[in-house]
Design a protein around this nucleic acid. Structure first.
Lengths: 194, 194
DNA sequence: TCAAAAGTGTTAAAGCTACACCCATGG
DNA sequence: CCATGGGTGTAGCTTTAACACTTTTGA
């Protein structure tokens, strides 16, 4: 599990952007992701708003969590790089807390949502799905129990295709079932206007 | 379950206050609760930050959820009143969403935290505790299962006292066990400075 | 034929739900 | 002695965790 950090006057920090007049918060967050990282995030969720006492005065930061599919390219703009969340370089305490909290939320949320699918291509093998969960939770999962759970949850549809990749049995391909309900997400998904 | 609303130019709205320079967000939230309602909240948690397009331009609102013990008085300042969350008067869409979301979070969170105890006096009967859960969840709970669960969760300590109130068997009194861990709260509890 | 990952069932333990009666008290 | 709310146990069901072998393929 990697996180994007950018260069800062004194080290590394999370990508950050100033406000724009005339746009909703979520829109601004998407803009900042694109401008600073050049990435196309698959999912964006507001995390927490904190106030920080900086040399110039109090600053209010609205933190967001964005998920990026690794197969969508990982080229970053200048001054930015990917870092392991479990061993990232020294950053400011507020940024550190935001990352810790993002990981906490992500870990809790993949348990009752389909968030993990936002980190995979539209079609994938069960092993890839399990690998995504294992990377986020940072612990191994039992293959049989895992498969039984995701199938029982009705999240999967077989595409009918297979993928051969190596000298062994090919894996069946699945896609996320169309009948996911985002109502269990426990995050407000309200329209904020343009 | 009641919510405080105050008078607004065109109806009712959630208590709201402008920013103060030189204070952390949580501190400001506490100040606003005290100033507008005069209440002493037992618990305060940031809910969500939304941007709203008002006649004067975009406004960013950092919404908080505060819990108030009913036994701590319910006298409100002028222009404010208590309303049933399940049947409150017409309010603006953003305020409506904040209330809906607050109730959603509260309902989810009493399941894995000790939040309900913030709505009770330090010492209480099991029936009072169950009543708190039932009011929040808006459905009846089984007495035996409820008692078994809260006791198994190790949340309770008998005080040794009883409470007689009526022509029937007196109820044993409990307090919240000192060994609660707030680490399951899934909310960042970071220090923001003064 | 071998190596390597894909796929597949069962069993035991824990947790959850539903449900009915006796207990202590005041009037 | 009766009305009232306080307190208690059990049985069926569902969910979870642990665990090992067979299948298909390319080299």
């Amino acid at each position: 599990v990697l996180v994007v950090l950018q260069d800062d006057s004194s080290g590394k920090c999370l990508p950050r952007g100033g406000p724009t007049v005339g746009a909703a918060l979520d829109t601004q967050a998407r803009r900042i992701v694109r401008q600073i990282t050049g990435l196309n995030e698959q999912y964006l969720e507001q995390l927490y708003t904190l106030s920080v006492l900086e040399p110039t005065g109090w600053v209010v930061i609205v933190a967001y969590l964005g998920l990026v599919r690794p197969d969508q390219g990982d080229a970053l703009g200048p001054g930015a790089g990917w870092y392991e969340v479990l061993a990232f370089p020294h950053i400011s305490p507020p940024d550190h807390m935001v990352i810790d909290y993002a990981l906490l939320r992500l870990r809790a949320k993949i348990g009752y949502t389909t968030l993990a699918f936002d980190l995979l291509p539209p079609t994938f093998t069960l092993r890839e799905l399990q690998g995504t969960y294992e990377a986020i939770l940072d612990r191994p999962l039992d293959k049989r129990n895992f498969r039984r759970r995701v199938i029982a949850a009705g999240m999967l549809e077989p595409t009918g295709g297979k993928r051969r990749e190596g000298s062994h049995r090919p894996a069946l391909l699945y896609r996320l079932s169309a009948v996911l309900d985002r109502e269990t997400y426990l995050t407000p998904a309200w329209a904020e206007g343009p």
